[in-house]
Simulated assay, not measured.
Amino acid sequence: MKENKIAHITSVHPRFDTRIFLKEVRSLSEDKRNVCLIVADGKGDEVSNGINIYDVGKPNNRVSRLLFSWIKITYTVLKRRIKVIHFHDPELISAALLLRLFGVKVIMDIHELVIHDIDDKDWLRKFFLTKIVKFIYSIFERIGIFISYKVILAEAGYTNYFHNKYKSQLSKFSVVRNVPKMELIDSKPKLKRDGNKNILIYVGLISKIRGIAEMLETIAILDDTFELWLIGRWDSEKLHSKCKLHAAWSKVKYFGFLPPQEIYSICKSGDIGLSTLHPVENHLYTTPVKSFEYMACKLPMLMSDFPYWKEYYLDKAYYVNPLAPKDIAGTIVSILENTKYKNELIEKAYHFAFQNSWEKEKEILLKQYKEII
């Protein structure tokens, strides 16, 4: 199908982003679609798993990225005579609009509720810019929805927002959840560990609103048999430096940002997975990919007591106030003491994860492409 060229484009995400490359792009390639990836990370062009990756260069700063990366990506799409683009960043709506005028078909992939994420940006609140940025973004969001043939949501919890706001365009929307590839998880062995330790694991962006301060306070309360293992990127180097000064940092092991294959081996070696995010609007109706990864790795998980999470995950997780380290620590001890219930929960959670795997979601993705190509 060489006449149906497809490009996934991103100016923000890394080239081997789990959702974009490992799941969506590779699924299209396996379906014999002529697909490529266009990025802006400065690592150069390459071919991976038979897929061409084109690099437009890493911008010097955020302003440069906003002003120039979308232009370079647009040029690359036109130069490669791409017929369909699938874009992953709100800042690429300008590129999508211009390419739409050139006859390129557009798919918009929404990873998060940006309109609510803006509320959580401390630097915007500091300069009283939140309302202005939300107003500007809402205009761009409307343009993005209007010009897109398909709009893909990464979370089922986003549907209420978009269905209520864009009632006249409901046929464009579908949900392709960001859940794990079970075949990849099942094939990974456990990581060797000290059997005398109780390992708490957190996977994902490490930030204030995702509970890093409370996790450190929790590990400080627990005795020296406990360790906290962190996997992911820091929201800022300033936050990383501040956390390293915490009295409990000696009980923390930081693995850095890792590919899924390595993450799964580590998770399988843990005792409890943490997903104690703060109750901000952008978290309340998500189903974090880490939750499915924990379940698939047979790692019992402790989650924030959001009503939506308790309704969705039911008896496949433990719940706690994410802002109360003492309660979190007490619940952790209780989980480890009640082995029988924990093992029953692990089995139910594993089967739940298997029913919600990428192997099923990719069929929804491929259906969207069949409808427009």
Rank of each mutant, 00 (worst) to 15 (best):
L184T: 12
S207G: 12
V176M: 08
I185Q: 07
V176T: 12
K190I: 10
K188H: 08
I199N: 01
R177S: 05
I206L: 10
Y202N: 02
R193G: 02
N198T: 09
P180W: 05
G195E: 05
L205V: 13
K188S: 15
E183M: 13
K188P: 02
N196I: 07
I185M: 11
L200C: 08
V175E: 07
P189D: 06
R193E: 04
N178Q: 12
K181D: 12
S187N: 11
K197I: 11
N196F: 06
L200Y: 08
L191G: 00
K181P: 05
M182T: 11
S207N: 06
G204N: 10
V179I: 07
V175M: 08
K188A: 15
V175D: 01
S207A: 11
R210T: 07
V203D: 06
G211C: 13
R193A: 02
L184K: 10
K190Y: 05
I201R: 00
K197T: 03
K188C: 15
K208F: 15
Y202K: 00
N198A: 13
E183T: 14
N178T: 08
V179W: 00
L191M: 05
L191N: 01
S187G: 11
P180H: 06
M182R: 05
D194S: 11
S174Y: 01
S187R: 14
R177P: 01
D186R: 07
L200A: 06
I206V: 09
D186F: 12
E183N: 15
G204F: 13
E183K: 13
Y202Q: 00
M182P: 01
G195N: 09
G204C: 14
E183R: 12
K192N: 03
I185K: 04
E183G: 15
K192G: 00
K190G: 07
S207H: 04
R210L: 13
P189H: 10
N196T: 12
Y202F: 14
N198Y: 09
G211M: 12
S187F: 10
R210F: 10
I206D: 02
G211N: 05
K208C: 05
I199G: 00
K190H: 07
I185V: 15
R177W: 00
R193T: 03
S207R: 06
K192D: 08
D186Q: 15
R193H: 06
D186Y: 09
L205E: 13
N178Y: 07
R177K: 08
K192L: 05
L205A: 12
P189L: 14
I209E: 11
G195R: 03
G211D: 06
R193Y: 01
N198Q: 11
L191F: 05
S174F: 10
S174L: 14
K197H: 01
S174N: 09
L184R: 07
Y202H: 03
N178R: 03
S174Q: 07
L200N: 01
S174P: 02
M182Q: 10
G211Y: 04
L191S: 06
P180D: 05
N196E: 08
V203H: 04
K188Q: 15
R193K: 07
S174E: 12
G204Q: 09
D194R: 02
K192S: 06
K192F: 02
V203A: 13
N196S: 11
D194N: 13
K181Q: 12
L200T: 04
R177F: 03
V176Y: 09
R193L: 01
L200R: 02
L200M: 13
K197Y: 03
I206C: 03
P180F: 08
S207K: 01
L191R: 06
I201L: 11
L200W: 05
R210D: 09
P189F: 10
